[in-house]
Design a binder for these strands. Structure first.
Length: 419
DNA sequence: TCTGGGGTCCTAGGACCC
DNA sequence: TCTGGGGTCCTAGGACCC
């Protein structure tokens, strides 16, 4: 089993097309330019934390810190390139996230695993410009742990193989703080700390009863994996997703129903397009709006209802009107709303829905309409056509002050080589 | 003044049934 | 005052991941 992880992926993507960012501290900001979601090694060295609010980063102005708005079209496209290169090196690949993949290494002789991993690493670097590191282990959790060590250690040169020598396992686990184990988050790490469990090794030695009681069934699986029993198998063909969500923090809070409905309509439209692209239909819609959770001086609330959609559909008009009804029916005028979103639930493949004897005959007109709309958006870009009029400068629109061009996904942004 | 977005799974508790 | 036992299903919330 092998995990391959890009290093500081978003920051690395930005650097591929702007070499002036090399060796400089670079931070990529979340949507709305809110907080740090990716940091170059130099930014980490400055002590910048993941999730640190952007306004607190001004103190690094004199350190040459570069703040960039996030550019997900670019990262998504670069990710696809990296995955395509990785796929040529293994008979099976599970794309786990935008910057991580799990590869099947059966067939590579054990003695060659590390040198082979370094070859993959060099190839990805050369063909895409993205640096990656590789961890090899007998289970997914141990491979992830190996990957972390590969990133940390200079000597490892980007690849660590925990299967090479069984004697390495104990020191590797002892060097890993329990909170850095895959599956152990903040809450679980705190419980472990109270019980005197500090390292991955301590956790692996803990009694099953304590683990089940305090960390649940999931925690127990993590521990089994640390002990070398594979619980999570490779999944080359992940199934359809079960829900989809489009949500945004507003640029500024709003207090009127019209603004929240305008935002929700836009999110519902995007979410519907998302599930259509995957050939799915929704059985329920939930729209929601929340107040600003950081404003301790203001009253907090969340509104929204889950409304069934029968039969399931992915047509924008039906989804938008249901999302609006969800907000209207739960509306409370006394709050200032800072964030809203639309969830599509109970996703199914339309061909899997049993025929309803009493349903009115389906019209193929709305399907044809959606195909036409999606086709226009694909050719002309988002915003070329849509449902209803939406003010591009509305208060609720997100901020995004310094976004890099979409170098690889928009003709207008194509980099130009100078003679 | 300013704090992301999009997922999964599990669990506890309530509603309801006999 | 005393007031069963055992299921199922659903949902909200909490934990985790990136």
């Amino acid at each position: 089993m092998r995990w391959s992880t890009a290093e500081n992926f978003y920051a690395s993507c930005e650097r591929v097309f702007d070499p002036s960012l090399e060796r400089r501290p670079v931070v990529v900001l979340s949507g709305n330019d809110g907080c740090a979601i990716a940091r170059s090694a130099e930014a980490k060295a400055l002590g910048i934390e993941m999730g640190e609010p952007a306004f607190k980063l001004r103190r690094f102005e004199n350190d040459g810190l570069v703040l960039l708005s996030s550019n997900f079209p670019l990262y998504g496209d670069m990710s696809a390139r990296v995955m395509a290169v990785l796929a040529t090196f293994a008979p099976g690949i599970e794309v786990y996230s935008i910057d991580e993949a799990f590869l099947d290494v059966a067939g590579v002789p054990a003695a060659y695993l590390v040198s082979w991993a370094r070859c993959v690493r060099a190839t990805v670097r050369q063909w895409t410009g993205i640096p990656i590191s590789v961890g090899i282990g007998p289970t997914k959790t141990l491979a992830k742990l190996a990957n972390r060590l590969a990133k940390k250690s200079q000597k490892a040169n980007g690849a660590v193989d925990l299967t090479a020598d069984p004697a390495w396992l104990e020191p590797a686990l002892k060097r890993t703080p329990v909170g850095d184990v895959w599956g152990i988050g903040r809450q679980f790490a705190a419980k472990c700390g109270l019980a005197g469990i500090r390292s991955a090794w301590d956790l692996a030695q803990s009694p099953d009863g304590w683990i089940k009681k305090n960390l649940g069934a999931v925690g127990l699986r993590t521990v089994m994996e640390l002990r070398g029993f594979a619980v999570y198998e490779a999944d080359d063909f992940p199934g359809d997703r079960k829900s989809a969500c489009v949500s945004r923090t507003f640029g500024d809070a709003v207090d009127d129903l019209a603004s929240v409905k305008d935002a929700v309509a836009v999110f519902a439209e995007r979410c519907a397009a998302k599930i259509r692209k995957e050939g799915l239909a929704a059985g329920a819609v939930q729209a929601f709006a929340t107040t600003d959770r950081f404003r301790k001086d203001e009253p907090q609330a969340t509104i929204g209802l889950t409304l069934p959609l029968a039969p399931p559909t992915n047509a924008t008009p039906a989804i938008v009107s249901l999302a609006l009804r969800s907000i209207e029916r739960s509306w409370r005028p006394e709050f200032r709303w800072r964030k809203a979103g639309v969830l599509l639930l109970d996703l199914v493949r339309p061909e899997d829905i049993p025929a309803d004897l009493f349903a009115p005959p389906a019209s193929d007109r709305s399907e044809a309409l959606m195909q036409a709309v999606d086709g226009i958006v694909a050719r002309m870009g988002r915003g070329a056509i849509g449902f209803g009029h939406h003010d591009q400068n509305a208060t609720w629109r997100s901020r995004s002050a310094s976004r890099s061009p979409s170098w690889t996904t928009r003709w207008e942004d194509l980099p130009v080589a100078k003679a």
